[in-house]
Structure formats: structure tokens, C-alpha cells
Amino acid sequence: TTVEVQGVEYRFDNPEEAEKFAKKMAKSLNLRVELHGNKWRVE
């Protein structure tokens, strides 16, 4: 599972970890998070 934060990609073996990371990043950067296939995008 991939998390893309403002163009930078982070890879996770565990989808739940990816989701937690994406939501945490979105909250700290005041952005929103969307799931596209198996990629979380924070923008």
C-alpha cells in the first residue's frame, strides 16, 4: 500500500498502518486524504 503526501510516496506492507499514517499526515498538514485503488493520497 502506498501513501502519497504532496508528491512524496511512502510504502507500507500493512494497509492499516498506511491508513493510520495517511490520516495522521492529513491532520497535521491540514489536508484531506483520499483512497485511490491501493494508494492513499494526502492533498
Rank of each mutant, 00 (worst) to 15 (best):
T1D: 07
T1F: 15
T1L: 10
T1Q: 10
T1H: 14
T1A: 12
T1Y: 15
T1M: 13
T2G: 04
T2M: 12
T2I: 15
T2S: 10
T2N: 05
T2A: 09
T2Q: 07
V3T: 01
V3E: 00
V3A: 03
V3L: 02
V3R: 00
V3P: 00
V3D: 01
E4P: 01
E4H: 09
E4T: 11
E4R: 07
E4A: 09
E4V: 14
E4S: 12
V5E: 01
V5K: 01
V5S: 03
V5P: 00
V5H: 05
V5W: 06
V5I: 11
V5A: 04
V5F: 08
Q6G: 09
Q6E: 11
Q6P: 01
Q6N: 11
Q6V: 10
G7D: 04
G7Y: 03
G7R: 03
G7L: 03
V8N: 06
V8C: 15
V8Y: 08
V8D: 04
E9G: 04
E9C: 15
E9F: 09
E9S: 10
Y10K: 02
Y10Q: 02
Y10M: 03
Y10P: 00
Y10I: 05
R11I: 12
R11G: 05
R11E: 10
R11N: 10
R11P: 06
R11K: 13
R11S: 09
R11M: 11
R11W: 13
F12N: 00
F12D: 00
F12K: 01
F12M: 02
F12P: 00
F12E: 00
D13G: 09
D13K: 09
D13F: 08
D13C: 15
D13T: 11
D13E: 12
N14D: 14
N14K: 09
N14Y: 08
N14R: 09
N14L: 09
N14V: 08
P15F: 10
P15R: 08
P15V: 06
E16G: 10
E16K: 10
E16Y: 11
E16M: 11
E16R: 10
E17S: 08
E17R: 06
E17D: 12
E17A: 10
E17K: 07
E17Y: 06
E17T: 08
E17W: 05
E17N: 06
A18S: 02
A18V: 00
A18K: 00
A18F: 01
A18L: 01
A18C: 10
E19L: 09
E19F: 10
E19Y: 11
E19K: 06
E19T: 04
E19N: 03
E19M: 09
K20H: 11
K20R: 12
K20A: 13
K20W: 11
K20F: 10
K20M: 12
F21V: 01
F21I: 01
F21T: 01
F21C: 13
F21S: 00
F21H: 02
F21Q: 01
A22T: 01
A22L: 03
A22Y: 02
A22P: 00
A22M: 02
A22W: 02
A22F: 02
K23N: 08
K23V: 09
K23I: 12
K23C: 15
K23F: 12
K23G: 04
K24Q: 14
K24F: 15
K24V: 10
K24H: 14
K24T: 13
K24G: 10
K24L: 13
K24E: 14
K24A: 14
K24R: 13
K24M: 14
K24N: 12
K24I: 12
M25K: 05
M25D: 00
M25T: 07
M25Q: 05
M25F: 04
M25C: 15
M25A: 07
M25Y: 04
M25E: 03
M25N: 03
A26P: 01
A26L: 02
A26C: 08
A26F: 02
K27T: 12
K27G: 08
K27C: 15
K27I: 13
K27W: 09
K27V: 13
K27D: 12
K27Q: 14
S28C: 15
S28W: 13
S28G: 07
S28Y: 13
L29V: 02
L29E: 03
L29W: 03
L29Y: 04
L29D: 03
L29C: 15
N30H: 09
N30S: 05
N30M: 06
N30K: 08
N30D: 07
N30I: 03
N30G: 14
L31H: 05
L31W: 05
L31A: 13
L31Q: 05
L31I: 05
L31N: 03
L31S: 07
R32M: 11
R32S: 11
R32H: 12
R32C: 15
R32W: 07
V33Y: 13
V33P: 08
V33K: 02
V33R: 03
V33C: 15
V33M: 12
E34I: 13
E34Q: 12
E34Y: 14
E34H: 13
E34S: 14
E34K: 10
L35Q: 10
L35P: 03
L35A: 06
L35F: 14
L35G: 04
L35N: 07
L35S: 05
H36Y: 09
H36K: 10
H36D: 12
H36A: 09
H36N: 10
G37L: 06
G37F: 05
G37V: 04
G37K: 06
G37R: 04
G37P: 03
N38M: 06
N38F: 05
N38E: 07
N38R: 06
K39I: 14
K39C: 15
K39D: 05
K39M: 10
K39L: 09
W40H: 03
W40N: 02
W40T: 02
W40E: 02
W40F: 06
W40D: 02
W40Q: 03
W40A: 02
R41W: 12
R41C: 15
R41Q: 10
R41K: 12
R41G: 04
R41N: 05
R41A: 07
V42A: 04
V42C: 15
V42D: 04
E43Q: 11
E43R: 10
E43K: 09
E43D: 13
E43M: 14
E43G: 15
